[in-house]
Structure formats: structure tokens, C-alpha cells
Design a protein around this nucleic acid. Structure first.
Lengths: 187, 187
DNA sequence: GTGCGATACGGAGGGCCCCACCACTTAGCA
DNA sequence: TGCTAAGTGGTGGGGCCCTCCGTATCGCAC
């Protein structure tokens, strides 16, 4: 392929816009067919631009993910490494539990193509969290053996498990706090 | 209804047996229709005995859930309250991550009928965990504000988030350990 | 043993969805 | 202005979920 044709780019954008609304409304298992209908294209066109549901979800969330990544790099040099990490994890949790479908998308990551992994959401987040984690670890604030991927996984799990709560964001935040401080401290 | 007819009871048992295998093989979103076919009954019969997918899942897991509950009550009087709690949580995690679909079933709980809640899996587990938690708390081993439901929710989340890992059980156990000890201790 | 009423069954049909194929349109270069 | 490859969307097959309703079966009463 040389470069995408103009109409293809137009359709891509339109589908993505509709998909954002639809995923926000119905979560990760929004109907692809419905998205196609609303966008005024055939269902095959959706599948061409986004071969799998996972691909579409990643595209939908990628901007916000990038924002979180940027935020992480911005606070990489903050004076209090521990606080910076905590704050970022809080932001991640808040966003993930407000954006229906993100958490499911994160767990699905790496389940299909093994090599497409580095480009996917969770890898990007883990990559962004890593510097924060390293600095906090150097400050002696982090338990041994914790990886950035662990942090993302834990947050994902909390969000998934609180999804059906009333006020999921608050519950998720509370459980995050618990997890960070330790449920049964002084091991 | 007076009492169930003999053939109805037979069908119920047969469906349940098939459902166990099918859920073990395909997780919480196993095909109800396929279960019906394998059991040699019409799909309507499945729906009659188990009005919702959630109902079926609860039935599938109830024996094992009851076993976990029994285990909790058995170790309610153990000398080391903290160790007893930890051990039970480990067992819960191990079972949940080995039994496909259990974690999803736990998160779905209470999402439909508000009053059927007490009978459902997660409530049963939380009820069983509560005495262990209380005793551990009295021993000063538990962070303030932790409820039994929190414990079940956290384990559920960890299991959900590690489901697509290779070796999910080991990963889940590691993350449980992290959560209990605290990722970023000394709050 | 037989008849009857309530209970339980399962097939059929509608709606929705995912997926793959393929004849057709259209953009963009020469 | 033509040509060609890129892109499109309609269509059909396969599944699944769910509901309705005519029918078969059970189990009690006689």
C-alpha cells in the first residue's frame, strides 16, 4: 500500500467517532454492526479498518492513553517520587473506571498477536509507569518484586471488579488505596 | 408449585452436569444453546430451569463455593487469625483462577435482582470470610476500613486481570501477595 | 388399571450479531 | 481524460438468545 486514499481516511475517522460514543454507551462489547450503521458505512468497511474488536478499542482509547502516558513523563521529575507514582495510579484508575470498556480492552491485550503487543494499550501504560516506579523504588517506597506491568494489571483488576458497583469510580479508588497501603500490612 | 416432577429433576441434573463441563471449557460465556444440545434437551428447557446465565453459573459453582465456605468456618478458630485469613484468601484465589467463569460470575452478582443478592456466590463468600477477617482485625493485622466484601472483590479483580496470562494461577497468587502486603507500604 | 389436569417439554420463528466473499465504484496518477 | 488498484457495501451463512405455543408426560385420584 502506498498511502491511504482520501475516502478511506474519511471513513476511518467517521467510524472512530461513532465508535467512541457507542463504546461509551455500551462498553467494550458494543455492536460493531450498529457502529457501521450509525456511521453510514457497510459492516465490512468497519472490519477492514479495524480487523478485530481489540483493534477498534485500542484506537478508541489511544488518545486518552496517550494523555496518561504524557502525564507520566511530565511528572517523572517530580520532587516526591512516591507521591508522583500514587497520583498517576489514581488518575489511571479514575479514567479506566469512567471509560466503559477500557479495562476489558486492557485484559484482552496480547491475547491474539504475540508480536503486536508492544503497541497495545497496556504495554504503553506499563512503559509509561516504569520510570515513575523506578524512581519510587529508588526512594525505597516500593515493595520488592513489583513491576510496572503489575501495577497496570492490579488497577485493571480493581476496575473490572468494581464495574457493576453503584459509583464504581469511588469504590475503585478506595480499593486502590487499600491495595497500595496493603490489606494486611507488616508481612 | 407443589414439588418438582421427576423428569424435571432429571433434566435439571443433566443440564447442570453438561454446563459444568461446558463452562470449564469455554468460561462464563459458554453457549447455552450448545449446553442444551449436548444435554439432549430443548433450549427452552435450559431457560426454564435457569432463567438467566447468572443463575446457571451460580448453580455450577455452588458446590465449590460451599466447600470454600465450609473451609472458612472450619478455620475460624485457628490459633493464628492472620495466617488463617491469608490461607483462605489463597485458596479462594487458587480456585477462582482455576475455574473458568467463576470470577465473571462473581462480578455479575447482584447486578440483576437486588433482593436475590444474599443467595448469590459473592455474598456467600463474603459472609464466610467475615469471621476470619474480624478475628484478624482484632489481632491488629488488618488495615482499617477493610470489609469482607472488599476482600472478595479484590481477589475477583486479580483473577479477572490475570486470566489471559500464561500460568494465571501463579500470577494471581503473586499479585494477591502484593496486594495483601501492600504495593507501596508505610502510608 | 385408567382417566384427567397440571406440569414440563421442545421445536419453530424472530431478531441480532459476527464473519467472509465478490461484483462494483471511485480516487488519483499518467 | 482513461486506466488501475484501492476501497466499498450488499448479501448470505452460521450462531446465539429469547419467546411463544401446541404437545407429551407425569403422577394423583378413583
Amino acid at each position: 500500500m502506498t498511502v491511504q486514499r482520501a475516502d478511506a481516511r474519511r471513513n476511518y475517522a467517521r467510524i472512530l467517532a461513532v465508535a467512541e460514543e457507542e463504546v461509551a454507551a455500551h462498553g467494550a462489547d458494543a455492536s460493531l454492526e450498529n457502529i457501521a450503521r450509525t456511521a453510514g458505512v457497510g459492516s465490512a468497511t468497519v472490519r477492514r479498518h479495524f480487523p478485530s474488536r481489540q483493534t477498534l478499542l485500542e484506537a478508541v482509547f489511544s488518545e486518552r492513553i496517550d494523555a496518561l502516558v504524557a502525564r507520566a513523563t511530565a511528572s517523572a521529575g517530580a520532587p516526591d517520587a512516591r507521591a508522583a507514582l500514587l497520583e498517576w495510579l489514581g488518575a489511571l484508575t479514575a479514567y479506566a473506571s469512567s471509560a466503559r470498556g477500557l479495562a476489558e480492552a486492557l485484559t484482552l491485550a496480547g491475547t491474539d498477536d504475540p508480536d503486536h503487543a508492544p503497541a497495545c494499550c497496556s504495554a504503553k501504560l506499563a512503559g509509561a509507569a516504569d520510570p515513575l516506579l523506578q524512581r519510587a523504588a529508588q526512594a525505597g517506597a516500593v515493595a520488592p518484586g513489583v513491576t510496572a506491568a503489575d501495577l497496570v494489571t492490579l488497577v485493571t483488576g480493581i476496575v473490572l471488579a468494581t464495574e457493576h458497583h453503584q459509583d464504581p469510580a469511588a469504590e475503585a479508588n478506595r480499593l486502590l488505596d487499600l491495595t497500595l497501603r496493603g490489606v494486611v500490612p507488616q508481612g
